[in-house]
Design a protein around this nucleic acid. Sequence first.
DNA 1: TTTATGTGCAACCATTCGGTTTCGCAAGCT
DNA 2: AGCTTGCGAAACCGAATGGTTGCACATAAA
Lengths: 106, 106
Amino acid sequence: MRRDIFQAIADPTRRAILTLIALQAMTPNAIAENFNTTRQSVSKHLRILTECELVKQEQQGREIYYSLEVEKIKEVDEWVSQFRKLWETRFNQLDDVLSTLKQQHK
Amino acid sequence: MRRDIFQAIADPTRRAILTLIALQAMTPNAIAENFNTTRQSVSKHLRILTECELVKQEQQGREIYYSLEVEKIKEVDEWVSQFRKLWETRFNQLDDVLSTLKQQHK
DNA sequence: TTTATGTGCAACCATTCGGTTTCGCAAGCT
DNA sequence: AGCTTGCGAAACCGAATGGTTGCACATAAA
């Protein structure tokens, strides 16, 4: 029962769910209508997303609305950021090459 | 045999490998020394990382040096970026709350 | 040429994953 | 009170995952 964010977003359906509920909270049934799968399957995905706090629930009568915990996605952003400086450096190097080529054209 | 980046970075060992070879290319044996696992296991991870182009290899004699394809990680960054505006908005809202509280103190 | 080293690959195994089916429960409707 | 609806949880199943072991094939060293 590994429960970390990276394992959670590994599944394409779960990523789609996150995108879907990013703007407005939705019920499991409403979410399931957007995919070729059953409500129970979506329910399982929601459980995983809830367990690693990517999603929060809010009961309203007999319906449960799920919405995105956007703060949690920052953790992915933080992991990516360790590499960001690398591709920025590479970009700058490309920049240097381009300006050198420009110089040679003059 | 799903081969997408998100599935690739789902495994903590693979994420550690990416961090490890981000700054300098390394051989499978050298990489394996950093983990409590066998060379063959690392080799399998490297194959997965290579297949989804997160890593590139360079043969040198009988050794194979693996290094990071930093450009590919941008794809994760792009996925995250769809949520970035959300947490920035939330931050601004918090900002508004704080300045309102500040006003009330005056 | 023989031996040692670095590597990938295939076979195997226990575990996990994602999906479906079935069930039970609680909230609303008639 | 009955019936319907929305939901989670458990049981089950085929497929995928991560690890180990054993092998084959190069390259380098003796």
